[in-house]
Amino acid sequence: MGPLIPQGVIDPAWNNVFALLIGLAFGFILESSGFSSSRKLAGVFYGYDFVVLKVFMTAVMVCMIGLLYFDYMGWMKLSSIYILPTFLYSVIIGGVIMGFGFILGGYCPGTSFCGAVIGKIDAMFFTVGLYLGILFFSVLYPVFEKIYHAANLGPVQVHDLIGIPAAWFAFAFLVAGLIAFFVVSKIEARAKKVEY
């Protein structure tokens, strides 16, 4: 049955409407869970606040379970979902850069906009930097191109790589996630309270 728009159940003209609605909801939730504060994100690295980890891990777990059930029920075929190809080096290098950006700036691209619209000056600077980064990358693209496209593994999935059924991988991931939540809550309890 699903995905609804590509299968023609809903007219593609609605794309932008949904994008707007989902975007609004996303922004609202980011703001209301306090992500528009740079201390919140940086907290993960300094060990006093793990909300970011919890929120995103939970989102991943819920989404994963939901999709697997949808697939099982035949509501939405997993195969009809586009999986981005993995470019190994780009992912590693990009991940390192992004990680440093998180610690230094205290924002990720989405939350920086949240921060900017509620008037946080550091977020505004971050946003400007974001665009400078995009410009920088675009201009120097020919230089990076080779490494950008290197080590293309195609649209691989972890459970295919290690050769276990998707359900088992999902379950293992769940357990790992729940353990991680438990551990970080202990760390959090020990850390000094930080005022935002």
Partner: peptide, 10 residues
Amino acid sequence: EKTTTIQGGC
């Protein structure tokens, strides 16, 4: 090959 794809980030 899949042509350009829109990549998202948070």
